[in-house]
Design a protein around this nucleic acid. Sequence first.
DNA 1: GTCTATAAAAGGATAGAC
DNA 2: GTCTATCCTTTTATAGAC
Lengths: 204, 204
Amino acid sequence: MSPRVDEQNQQIRDKRKQQLLAAGAKVFGERGYAGTKVSDIVGEAQLSHGLIYHYFSSKEDIYMELAKTAFTTSYDTIHQAVNSNGSPYERLKAMTEEILAHTRESGYFFLIALQTNTSKTVPEQASAISAEYSAKSLKLLTHLFQQGQKHGEFIKADPSQQALMYTSMLNGVVFTRLTYPSLECFPQVDQILRAFINTSSVKE
Amino acid sequence: MSPRVDEQNQQIRDKRKQQLLAAGAKVFGERGYAGTKVSDIVGEAQLSHGLIYHYFSSKEDIYMELAKTAFTTSYDTIHQAVNSNGSPYERLKAMTEEILAHTRESGYFFLIALQTNTSKTVPEQASAISAEYSAKSLKLLTHLFQQGQKHGEFIKADPSQQALMYTSMLNGVVFTRLTYPSLECFPQVDQILRAFINTSSVKE
DNA sequence: GTCTATAAAAGGATAGAC
DNA sequence: GTCTATCCTTTTATAGAC
């Protein structure tokens, strides 16, 4: 086997794997883990039924890979925003816009992360990773709310509760937008933030 | 067969059906339609596998009955709150508290309604009913936001968009609370409403 | 009315040809 | 590397005894 052929084969393998992951993201995101059949994934990818088992060992395996991607990218987005420059309010606003923009392109990963967080039907291993990243993300957000309150920009309230409230509300609106993608101008970032900031201290 | 026995049998039938519906609400709410097995329902109800088919014609049938209950009670709650006395803000606040209290007792029905709204794996008929009630509920809310804006209590913005935003945020926080039931003091109603009201016009 | 046993169907995973 | 055919487990649904 010449190196030339090896390289071509590797390219094919990479392409197929990406194809299956993209198809998996779509159908898992739309239908959930339990509601997704292997035949749904390969049907979406336009590949034969058996081929998926040359690239993944099981339905669980491909889900795990997608869930990991979902959590790491989500965490990175938050981490980057929290540690950037600007006042707490500016960072929270930038982060919110970033998340909304991000879920506009790769909404299926948002849905997979949400499912993995909350559904009892996903693989056990996925739930474990979910819990780990959720806790880490919540800590970053809590710290940001602490800073914002000290800074006077945010309303006074238990920071970790504020972080949870922020996450919950954002989940709700993103979820709605992904369910009704036709709503172009939904949601308004300022309105979400309004629940957390001192209207007197921040120019609206 | 004496009337006495007829009556007793009817009582047993009613009791069993309720047992199965309660068990179904729990497991469908927790695991979704696709993730729920008939054996999960009868296991939860502590009844034999075959018995469920004496009370419901299929897994789909029992789900439909639960979904209908979920939507009608949700709609009634909104309808009642919107048409009660008080200023728009007072009605919105009372409704929010009512919904939170309601989902505290019968959270599984909230989860079933949410799933039915958004999942592509629920019975087709359930999606149809869901769409119908969602539209009706949104109209009621939109009207309330129109009144609140005219009244000066609410911030100015497209009322139907405000209604959708309110629903989305509330879904998000209720969902979080049902996922982490330990959070006793979550969420704060005033903070949710803060996103929609003029802080100057309403005493906080 | 309730249960156990069984049929029927669906879905995940593998084998082997090309 | 890819496909079709097949296996086998799981799950829905029914039948018939008690």
